[in-house]
Design a protein around this nucleic acid. Structure first.
Lengths: 125, 125
DNA sequence: GGACGCTACTGCGCATTGCGCGGTACCTTC
DNA sequence: GAAGGTACCGCGCAATGCGCAGTAGCGTCC
């Protein structure tokens, strides 16, 4: 449902990854992200992220006038951006691993009753 | 790094998962989460999450006076919580999968130069 | 030719959520 | 009785994604 919160801190890597594959302009990056599976990503979020990454030195940018439509602000990844991407990917991998471990403990419904705590259930005191 | 943003929207599942395994009180849940790998989780975040989940009906709570120390506010998972947990786990799995696919595209440095420069973006024309 | 629609980007303000920090309180130990 | 670990709460802040409105170029349809 609310995949929105899951994007926090991940949009950066996602955008970096997409741009690293090939330079792209905002509108295009949005499409590519959605095509990649992040279907609910908002365009404003992507534009904002691009600007932030650019401001942080992870991306460069150049404007290309379009024949059919408004100009396009292309973004390309910088060495710093590539480095960031590398680190972030690792951070993500570790994090995802941790989470998978955590979530593996409870299969949603099947719970090893053996270790059930006697749940005191003391009355309210 | 700043794992803090990655926790967004995930702390909920994490806490649910931990409590689903066994009832626990705030201070304890914090320890368990940290032990599970979320070492940087703040206690205030956990307490807040517990309260939020409780308010949402995913958790029940009962106070147990402790012999050595302050009282402990135990939390247990409710059927609704278990359901939430199940859904969330799936959401997470799907999301993680998407991300892994996205990040797989760029190995940080190795990029298939072949597809460089193009962005045709098969416009509707 | 004006309305409409798609492309493309920007700015504004809001909502969520994790966190630092300070405060309260209980209990044990030196 | 001061110190320290346990245990919880509330306040206010910061980061970030998003909806929405606005601007603008260009093509199409009636």
């Amino acid at each position: 449902m609310d995949t929105t919160q899951l994007l926090k801190g991940v949009l950066d890597v996602a955008v970096l990854a997409v741009v690293a594959q090939e330079d792209g302009y905002g509108y295009d990056v949005v499409r590519r992200l959605r095509a990649a599976g992040l279907e609910d990503v908002g365009d404003a979020s992507v534009y904002g992220t691009l600007r932030r990454l650019y401001a942080g030195g992870s991306l460069t940018s150049y404007v290309v006038p379009s024949d059919e439509g408004p100009h396009r602000k292309y973004y390309g990844i910088t060495p710093l951006g590539r480095q960031e991407l590398g680190e972030q990917r690792q951070t993500w991998a570790a994090f995802a691993d941790t989470m998978s471990g955590l979530l593996a403990g409870s299969t949603g419904n099947t719970v090893p009753l053996e270790r059930r705590r006697r749940t005191g259930s003391e009355g309210t005191r």
